[in-house]
Amino acid sequence: MSTPMLLGARAILAAGVLACLAGPWLFDANSLTVLTEFFIVVTLALMWNLLAGYADIISVGQQGFVGVGAYAFFGFTALLHMSVWAAVPLAALTTLLIAVPVMAVIFRLRTAYLAVGTWVAADVLMLIAGKLPGFGGGSGTSLPIPVVKQFGARLGDRIDMFYALSLGLALIAFLATWALLRSRIGLGLTAMRDNEEAAGSSGVDLVRTRILCFLWTAPFLGLAGVMTALEKLRVAPTASFNITDWTIDIIFIVVIGGIGSLEGPILGAILFFLLRQWLADFGAWYLILLGVISIGVILFEPKGLWGACRRWGFPDILPAGHAPGPGAPERVAGPDAQEAPAARTVG
């Protein structure tokens, strides 16, 4: 609502981005490593949010494509001896190519089934990765030193380089998703978020839009996978396809931050990293706490922290083009909401 508030928020955002860009000159190696991880997580959260928040696809198998990216990168560099600079885009492409048949199979499942379908697919990809010759089997293997050295001869250089790459990935993922949401396709996606039936009846081709989104996320997830391989300097089925790190945490981040906005996933990721600094020692209790919080959020504030901000009159810092104003109607939740044709929703 209030312009000063919006300007203030945007100023903070701009300062944040600038500080990130100047990161290598501002932060020590330790912080840079944490931030590298942060950008990977932001990328993953943006992708999960695109699917859950706009395309109505709940993925519990996002880790599958992350792992594929990591393994593809390892294959192109360590096994085929390609330059890392060729291998990075090729890894993204490989992930996309693998996403196509995966999509073709699991999209035979609808809605709730699809969620478990993505999980099965990710499990299959992980098990196959453990069988590939040259990748170290079930226990995985390290990236060869010569491959790693291509990113910088000294450790400090490499830390800067990995930082820059993951920052670049997060920025591109963000800008590309923003552009997608502001495009004509995004109009349909936003309509789908606000009322799926309305989107369907107003001629948006739901299935094609869903497929597009699913495939859209694949190369970004693959690139995030490359970054995880670089961060850990190894690939392994359990680590590269880790459901906790690449999907479960991400779901918590997006749910708590706010599904269906661009700000939510970022807000959630910041919160997640802060919480983790304080609560990491509590181990399982930390995840239990996140589980409880996220159930509470779903029940009482379904649009998360950012949704709450919106209701308090906070404007979208990054309007995704077609977002409804705070006064826009939610879905009808009367006793017969299920039978009410969407057209009845006023608006």
Binding site: P329, E330, V332, G334, A340, R344, V346
Partner: peptide, 9 residues
């Protein structure tokens, strides 16, 4: 004086 509302409508 029966009234029926669906949200604001």
């Amino acid at each position: 004086k029966l009234n029926v509302f669906y949200d604001a409508f």
